[in-house]
Design a protein around this nucleic acid. Sequence first.
RNA 1: GGAGGCGUGGCAGAGUGGUUGAAUGCACCGGUCUUGAAAACCGGCAGGGGUUUGCGCCCCUCGUGAGUUCGAAUCUCACCGCCUCCGCCA
Length: 428
Amino acid sequence: MLDIQLLRNNIDAVTAGLTARGTAFDPTKFLALEQRRKTLQTGTQELQARRNALSKQIGLLKGRGEDASAVMAEVGGIGDELKANEHELAALLQEIESVVSVLPNLPDASVPAGRDESDNLEVARWGEPPAFDFAPRDHVDVGTGLGGLDFETAVRLSGSRFAVMRGAVARLHRALAQFMLDVHTREHGYTEVYVPYLVNPASMFGTGQLPKFESDLFAAPHGDGGRLYLIPTSEVPMTNFVRGETVKPDALPMKFVGHTPCFRSEAGSYGRDVRGMIRQHQFDKVELVRIEHPDRSWAALEELCGHAEAILQKLGLAYRKVALCTGDLGFSAAKTYDLEVWLPAQNTYREISSCSNCTDFQARRMQARFKNAQGKNELLHTLNGSGLAVGRTLVAVLENYQQADGSLVVPEVLVPWMGGVEILEPAR
RNA sequence: GGAGGCGUGGCAGAGUGGUUGAAUGCACCGGUCUUGAAAACCGGCAGGGGUUUGCGCCCCUCGUGAGUUCGAAUCUCACCGCCUCCGCCA
């Protein structure tokens, strides 16, 4: 959520930022609402003040056993007008809230300007795409060749955009997640957490999925007319750890790593990446979340991104680091780096991690604060990044480590998690 | 799922219609004392919002939402959550 004060006092800067992101925003309309709010709110509060003062007077008079009927008549006249004002004000505030709650975060000044992903800025490249002396197959062919990927069964169970994994490939998938968790906890200082996969609407609002992106979520009816949502990323539960909390400064930074399935309805994605595991309704992800002091969040973003990169480097997968342009930023992010891994069969780099500094945008929605040096409550900064998307990492390993004979070399760092297995042989 | 109980400030815990945003204790912050610390003593200490150049003034909040009333932490209704017991269950 954007700071309402910023909208009131600096609407031009807000409009410029939103425009850079490609978000339509009508400042005139907002200011009109705001003008009405100001008048109505001060008026309502004046009435409330008068009622309070007169009621207090009645209490005094009655306490002394004196006649209060004159004052009671006076205050009685306020009632209807006050009630009407209060209702009108509540409706107006809600209208303003509904406008503001769908506005995305403002891009940081360092974010490159641009319309869409073609304007993203490559900032680094690591590793060499492997050379093949045969035509590399895509991960679907490699995985099914190993007897480990089965989309037909998944369709029978659930439909399209789901996968069944079997045998060594299923184990490889698990090994990847275990490996990532161990690196982040042992080498990068993150605390491993286990979290609910179903969360309440307030949590989804806190991290920005609601109210604007409800159609991307899976929901399950729960309780009397209520619902729980399946998490589209463990960023949601992990970041909401601090919702409604005022943390002590010495508790910062908080660094969490969690491995969860992620569920995305991905309405509107149809036709993109229909083949294979690139875009699924359910996929595993190891997620990094950091709760930071505002002064530290930009340094933390670089650090976080480095932690995700470390996984790719240890796996020996070539990748590039891209700074998303203003038009390609996610809703809550002030700045995002995507890591894109080399996929030989597509002959291109594909997103495998997204690392964002959300500044105080989510913290304001969540009312997540800390006591600053002056003893005042101040909003925290939140960051998140994939470290990494497990399904897509499996895709990358299958494609990059495939051999001409259909076998797969297990990346060296994964061998301990594969029980010593170094090569996966093709199924007969 | 059934029965009962309970939701008050960071925590504990008073408070059943009137100057109570709320006693007291603990925790925390500042000070006195002390070589230093502890103890003792003194003082401060909820959040959100409006308005104002500022001092300040004002509004809202005792789980949430409606209602009764001139006035609600206190009364009524609904909902949510937690606890205990029973049932079921990994």
